[in-house]
């Protein structure tokens, strides 16, 4: 019974702290995305054909830790199958943050455009399923600055 209590405490703490961190992060994401909107990032592999450019590899990566609440819900969801909605927001945040960091790097070198953008995600919590997942999202692309 004591163990049940520990689980309940962790899940409750995870829910409130995780929710607070998430809403703060989303607010910051929306704000910074608006700010960096002038610098487009494209998935296209074909560079613009109008003139000469400097080409630099830019990348941004972020590591996001999970909270106990999300892990618990995901664990239960594994029994029945279906969307793991608690992880959807986690991965959405990770990808957007990585892309923003990449764009910030490109902005520092006064780039006009980032093209051929790609994402990678990696689970870095190890092989044991007991530990809550920790996710790394990595965005990279080629930044172009008009000569």
């Amino acid at each position: 019974m004591e163990q049940l209590l520990y689980v309940a405490v962790f899940v409750t703490l995870g829910y409130f702290f995780g929710k607070r961190a998430e809403s703060k992060h989303f607010k910051s994401l929306i704000e910074r995305e608006q700010h960096l909107n002038a610098l487009p990032a494209m998935a296209s592999r074909m560079p613009p054909q109008d003139g000469q450019y400097d080409q630099v590899l830019v990348s941004g990566s972020v590591v996001i830790a999970n909270d106990y609440f999300k892990t618990f819900v995901a664990g239960l969801r594994n029994l029945f199958g279906g969307k793991i909605t608690t992880y959807e927001s986690l991965l959405d945040r990770a990808r957007r943050e990585a892309l923003l960091r990449m764009k910030e790097q490109a902005q520092q070198m006064n780039a006009d455009l980032v093209f051929n953008v790609k994402y990678e995600t990696a689970n870095i919590s190890g092989q044991t399923s007991k530990k809550p997942p920790i996710i790394e999202a990595h965005a990279y692309g080629t930044a172009l600055r008009k000569l």
């Binding site: 829910y15 929710k19 989303f26 929306i30 995305e33 608006q34 909107n37 487009p40 990032a41 494209m42 613009p48 609440f69 999300k70 819900v73 969801r77 969307k83 909605t85 608690t86 959807e88 927001s89 959405d92 455009l113 093209f115």
Partner: peptide, 19 residues
């Protein structure tokens, strides 16, 4: 080249406590 502002709908809207 343009990155239009995307709607905030890439995450399910269901309340996590309900799930």
């Amino acid at each position: 080249y343009k990155n239009p502002k995307l709607p905030e709908n890439n995450v399910s809207k269901e309340h996590p406590l309900k799930e």
